[in-house]
């Protein structure tokens, strides 16, 4: 019997970072640690709310929501090398 069951949270094995053409570049000094980027990131790859964002580039798809929503505009989208 082969049960069509998956283990929870295993999508982390699937690295989506190579989808990216732009990546967020954070000017840490300007960051006010408001949590906006972390909250809105569809990938949940900006680190913990209340801290300076640390992007997990294994998953960042480069959508630019973080840069667009940042209230102090400390995130810029720059071309992926």
């Amino acid at each position: 019997m082969k049960l069509p069951i998956s283990k929870p949270g295993t999508s982390v094995e699937n690295k989506t970072g190579d989808w990216r053409t732009f990546k967020p570049d954070i000017e840490v000094a300007k960051c006010i640690k408001c949590g906006t980027c972390q909250r809105f990131c569809p990938e949940g790859c900006m680190g913990d709310e209340g801290k300076v964002p640390i992007v997990n580039f294994d998953y960042c798809k480069g959508c630019g929501i973080c840069a667009n929503e940042c209230p102090v505009k400390c995130i810029k989208m720059i071309p992926e090398k």
Binding site: V12, P42, Y59
Partner: peptide, 25 residues
């Protein structure tokens, strides 16, 4: 820190609003 229960590695398009929704929900 509230634990993420909808985690990274999903295959939603870049900028997908529903992915953010599920994290929130």
């Amino acid at each position: 820190m509230v634990e993420e229960l909808f985690v990274s590695g999903h295959r939603a398009c870049a900028g997908c609003g529903i992915a953010t929704s599920f994290r929130e929900v």
